[in-house]
């Protein structure tokens, strides 16, 4: 669906603050994938996804949507932005309308839909993020709780009916229940809405639960791209990049190093439980 070819991006050209944000990044994301992007702060994650919907223009290299260069001639930028939905970190900052439903309808209205159609889409989008439109639609977005504001902002992008949804730290700053809710909604959007999902996050536990594939960025370079399990299996590299591991994966590692033969590629509590029980059983038999 999206393909980047030798993408390089330099910002602040010609000023004392010039810096290269991305260097020669090539990757492809297919329809229906759930991809996590991880990397330390300043590694270029946010810069990279802003190329996906054309907010940034590569200094060199190309970005293709369905094999068409998005900066090519006769390409409608709005159509790109409609198809690739992007949510920045703390998206509740973008709320501005008097009512939630009007705010969510902002995107569809920009696409040229009639007021009625835009509102109908807004109501559907609110439904998707678990904010019943009859109850939340007429309220001011500034009266909502933190988690509700976050979900209203997500609805604002969903109302564009994109094919891909890019989320930057969607669960940051929420309480554990709020985090679970958001991640559950994202999972459902992928499963039921057939949306392609790109998730930028520092939470290794979240990517372990949600993502099938991981992209790892370090100082603007793509240093790893593969199945989540395989990427987490490469421990030394991740810690060197200032990234952590999911807690349970780290535990399995540490047990392995201490001589308990636990599978190292566990990602969830349940997998870890099974792996540890198996290892203990093996050791038990060994002793007997």
């Amino acid at each position: 669906m999206i393909r980047c070819e030798h993408l390089t991006y330099v910002y602040g050209r010609g000023t004392p603050f010039e810096a290269t944000a991305l260097t020669d990044v090539s990757l492809a994301i297919s329809t229906g994938e759930v991809v996590g992007i991880i990397g330390a702060t300043g590694s270029g994650k946010s810069t990279l996804v802003q190329h996906f919907n054309g907010l940034l223009r590569p200094t060199s290299g190309r970005v293709l949507l369905d094999d068409v260069d998005i900066h090519g001639p006769r390409v409608d930028r709005r159509r790109i932005r409609q198809q690739i939905g992007l949510l920045f970190q703390d998206p509740e900052q973008q709320l501005f309308e008097e009512t939630v439903v009007a705010d969510v309808a902002f995107g569809p209205r920009n696409l040229g839909l009639s007021d009625d159609d835009a509102r109908a889409r807004a109501r559907r989008a609110l439904e998707l993020v678990g904010l019943p439109p009859d109850r939340f639609g007429p309220r001011s977005p500034f009266e909502l709780s933190g988690g509700e504001m976050r979900r209203a902002a997500i609805a604002g992008v969903l109302a564009m009916e994109p094919r891909m949804l890019i989320l930057d730290e969607p669960a940051a700053g929420l309480d554990p229940q709020g985090r679970r809710d958001i991640l559950e909604h994202v999972r459902r959007l992928h499963r039921d809405g057939a949306l392609t999902i790109v998730l930028i996050t520092h939470s290794m536990d979240a990517v372990a639960q949600l993502c099938e594939r991981l992209l790892v960025l370090d100082q603007g370079r793509l240093v790893a791209d593969g199945p989540t399990r395989a990427v987490f299996a490469d421990l030394s590299r991740l810690t060197a990049l200032g990234l952590g591991l999911p807690q349970v994966t780290l535990l399995a590692r540490r047990l392995g190093e201490r001589g308990l033969p636990v599978r190292r590629d566990v990602l969830t509590i349940e997998e870890a439980r099974v792996a540890i029980l198996e290892a203990l059983a093996v050791r038990g038999r060994g002793v007997l």
């Binding site: 309480d175 229940q177 535990l251 509590i269």
Partner: peptide, 11 residues
């Protein structure tokens, strides 16, 4: 209460 024990505690 909208909380949960840490992952390792649950494990």
């Amino acid at each position: 209460l909208r909380l949960e024990p840490p992952e390792l505690v649950r494990l």
